[in-house]
Design a protein around this nucleic acid. Sequence first.
DNA 1: GCCACATACCTCGATGTCAAGAGACTTGAT
DNA 2: ATCAAGTCTCTTGACATCGAGGTATGTGGC
Lengths: 165, 165
Amino acid sequence: MEDEVDRLVAAWRRERPDLDVEPLEVLSRVSRLARHLDRARRLAFAEHQLEPWEFDVLTALRRAGNPYQLSPGQLLTQTLVTSGTMTNRIDRLAKKGLVERLPDPSDRRGVLVRLTEEGRDRADQALAGLLDQERAILGELSSAQRGELAGLLRQLTAPFDNIPG
Amino acid sequence: MEDEVDRLVAAWRRERPDLDVEPLEVLSRVSRLARHLDRARRLAFAEHQLEPWEFDVLTALRRAGNPYQLSPGQLLTQTLVTSGTMTNRIDRLAKKGLVERLPDPSDRRGVLVRLTEEGRDRADQALAGLLDQERAILGELSSAQRGELAGLLRQLTAPFDNIPG
DNA sequence: GCCACATACCTCGATGTCAAGAGACTTGAT
DNA sequence: ATCAAGTCTCTTGACATCGAGGTATGTGGC
């Protein structure tokens, strides 16, 4: 089955026959697939009245384990947004009652963000919905193929994740 | 070699041992890799004084072939942005002298966007730079592995690209 | 103890995107 | 010919993000 990247690569081969555009076969597909996944995620979360950014923050706290709390700084490094953005996000999540701000007992400059009970439930439900959606997308592949794909992708991501970039 | 997704999956297995989080092994890596690629692209384009969105528009016109012109509507479908965004982008590219607006001779409502000579050169240079960068990222993989990866990814993207979404 | 420097979070202004809709023109039916 | 409906581009207002800088607090050398 042909996809958009096949057409993209064919167009470049016609217009720039002098160039080797083979890298696009892999990396353009990664970018485009990620874009499709963003849309799918947005749809899955909408069923739970959550925006993608809300899911990101809530699940970071959820993964931290009991008592489900992190500093804004820790949330920054996990979600890769700037501090202004995180302040804004925490404000809105607090207004919706999904997280609460607590003073950090060990550092009076600091704040801790803690998941409320409702926040934890919403995060858990949204994660289950996301996994259902993702399983449907991966339905195309056999279990062996998924393993192979995960392994190949890990080879590409590991350098970024380990040699800090 | 371990990556961030290995850590993410391990955290979920600890916190939610009841859930099958295996889909994340593939799809979280796709999303994260796409994010890294965006950063790398931004760096590669900066050497040619281009923003990623500028590259997207210029190369869509470049791939159209001589005389390197498309309607704003055609650009919308290729770049997946809304019309307000595209109007804004064309304005800024025109101000920089990389594209020009022409009246559509066959439809007096319409406009055609045409690449200037400088626009074409900049697009060609930026593409070459991007491909160099991408080859470096793919250096991890053998030629056979790249082919395998491209094939597996095509299976995932084809449904999105063919059953319109 | 004091002071310079680092850290943590927040505020503010600028920017880019989206969604909705207005305006201009074309098309097709009558 | 005329008119309604459709198409295409641009405008507008709302909003989330970023980057730079501000305020308050902690830390370590002297």
